[in-house]
Amino acid sequence: MLFKDYHIPMIRSGSKTVTRREWDENYGRPNVGSVQIASDEMFTSDEEADCYIRILDVYDQPLGEMTDEDARKEGDYEDMDEFREGYAKVYGEDAWDPEKVVAVVEFEYVGRERPTEEEMVA
């Protein structure tokens, strides 16, 4: 999954465990349980990657239903005001619409190397 460069340290530290995406209905969503590369560059190979996440849940939510706790899970945001500022940096100043439904991806950091099949089952 593609992230901004400043998100990668947040993912590694565990302060970012959720991302919200403006995906259209034809976008291929990640499967729950799958391990994905988290990178700030498109088409990163396993050899180049050093940040992996396991997808815990994927669902839709209107932006207006977010709470301060949701904002904190998005990274180093104290509250919704800070999150809205960060959201505007990614999607543009006019992107925030409380009725806009976005994809919510909950994940956990699993390391700097892709887990083996045995590690994923354990």
Score class of each variant (00 low, 15 high):
I8Q: 08
I8V: 11
S13T: 15
S13M: 12
G14D: 03
G14N: 10
T17W: 12
T17Q: 14
T17C: 11
V18I: 13
T19P: 06
T19Q: 08
R21M: 09
D24Q: 07
D24E: 13
Y27C: 01
G28H: 12
V32T: 07
V32S: 03
S34F: 04
V35Y: 10
Q36R: 14
Q36F: 02
A38G: 05
A38C: 09
A38Q: 12
D40C: 11
D40P: 08
E41M: 07
M42T: 02
E48M: 07
E48F: 06
D50Y: 06
C51I: 08
Y52A: 05
I55N: 01
D57K: 08
D57G: 09
V58T: 12
Y59D: 07
D60H: 04
D60M: 06
D60W: 00
D60R: 06
Q61L: 11
P62F: 10
P62M: 05
L63M: 14
G64C: 03
M66F: 14
T67I: 01
E69L: 13
D70N: 13
D70P: 05
A71G: 04
R72A: 08
G75E: 14
G75Y: 11
D76I: 00
D76P: 03
Y77I: 00
Y77C: 10
M80T: 03
F83E: 08
R84Y: 10
E85R: 13
E85V: 00
E85T: 01
Y87L: 12
G92R: 07
W96A: 12
W96G: 03
P98F: 15
E99P: 02
V101S: 04
V101P: 00
V102K: 10
V104G: 01
V104I: 14
V105W: 02
E106I: 11
E106V: 11
F107K: 00
E108G: 07
Y109G: 08
V110P: 10
R112Q: 12
R114T: 06
R114F: 09
R114Q: 07
P115A: 10
P115E: 04
E117I: 13
E117Y: 13
E118I: 09
E118Y: 09
